[in-house]
């Protein structure tokens, strides 16, 4: 079954339901194999470049782990860049690294569209590990994998994505895939952090989370960055926490089976209280565990000998 005709994984926007089902079910079978201590070795002899132009611990280590578990090897580079510093062009950097002969490139960059550019200029598969505010497809897949693991399906479930939607690639990858799979998606946050015309994607915008929290099956809490406060998106962290922080108090009417997700790293006491982050409804560490599995599935589908 040739379900993934594209050479790269750039985003979930282009994924239809069949492709999502295929990759998620592949991840489930890999998880079972792994639990049975059977190791797929489909990346044997292959070397993957982890090219991170933006800091990352979790995603980078998760990809490296996935590559190793599939028998491949990886090289990781962190190159934090500033548009003010004009050095080697992105084109030259990427072409030079590619000339060393990698089998795939995992890339993270602060600019939306960088993985698309790299995919355009190289023949090897490119995996988007987060580009600006655009997409973080492996995170979107692992979030949904975790949701399905907890509740069987996301179809007709209510999912609230909470926080800085404007600057969140996690939100966009979640929205594209959740809508394809039949979930009802709500987004909430300060009006300044809700991007223009987002309702046209098919989501419902809510500004008061207390009105909807009792109906939710899943809440995906986004990290709030302090710099947004400095740029005037909201006045203070105190006010943010009061209006949008996920506190124990706020969850008093929530469904008992509510699952709370967070892509990490968590700002405890800001977007989510420790009592909630560590509480019975959280699946945050399940996400991290599943992240490796889902990334194994992605790499296996893109790189395994056909």
């Amino acid at each position: 079954m040739q379900i993934s005709p594209e050479k790269s994984l750039l985003g979930l926007r282009s994924f239809n339901r069949d492709r999502l089902d295929f990759i998620l079910s592949h991840a489930r079978s890999l998880k079972q194999l792994y639990a049975d201590n059977t190791h797929a070795r489909s990346l044997q002899g292959k070397t993957v470049l982890n090219l991170f132009f933006e800091p990352s611990t979790r995603t980078r280590v998760s990809f490296e782990t996935a590559i190793k578990r599939l028998g491949g090897s990886s090289v990781a580079i962190s190159m934090e860049t500033s548009s003010l510093k004009k050095g080697e062009t992105l084109f030259d950097t990427v072409k030079n690294l590619d000339a060393m002969g990698f089998d795939a490139i995992v890339v993270r960059h602060r600019n939306a569209g960088v993985p698309h550019f790299i995919d355009h200029i190289l023949d090897v598969p490119v995996i988007n590990a987060g580009d600006g505010f655009n997409e973080h497809p492996s995170q979107g897949l692992l979030d949904i994998f975790t949701m399905q693991e907890q509740r069987g399906s996301v179809e007709n479930r209510n999912v609230l994505i909470l926080g800085d939607i404007l600057h969140s690639r996690v939100a966009r990858s979640n929205i594209w895939a959740l809508l394809q799979l039949g979930a009802k998606v709500f987004v909430a946050g300060p009006p300044t952090l809700i991007p223009a015309n987002i309702a046209d994607m098919g989501v419902t915008v809510v500004h008061s989370i207390d009105d909807v929290i009792s109906q939710m099956d899943f809440i995906n809490v986004l990290r709030i960055q302090y710099e947004r406060q400095d740029l005037g998106y909201f006045p203070t962290i105190r006010e943010y926490r009061d209006q949008f922080g996920l506190t124990q108090e706020r969850l008093k009417d929530a469904k008992p089976e509510l699952c709370i997700l967070h892509p990490g790293p968590i700002n405890r006491g800001i977007e989510i209280d420790s009592a909630v982050a560590d509480g019975p409804n959280n699946v945050i560490l399940n996400q991290v565990t599943n992240g490796v599995i889902v990334r194994m599935a992605i790499l296996d589908l893109l790189l395994a000998p056909k």
Binding site: A112, F133, N134, E135, R172, A196, N197, I198, M201
Partner: peptide, 15 residues
């Protein structure tokens, strides 16, 4: 331009 396309492309919009 700031609008639906800047939202889905994750690019900073100019209103």
């Amino acid at each position: 331009n700031e609008g639906y396309y800047s939202t889905i492309l994750g690019l900073r919009g100019i209103h």
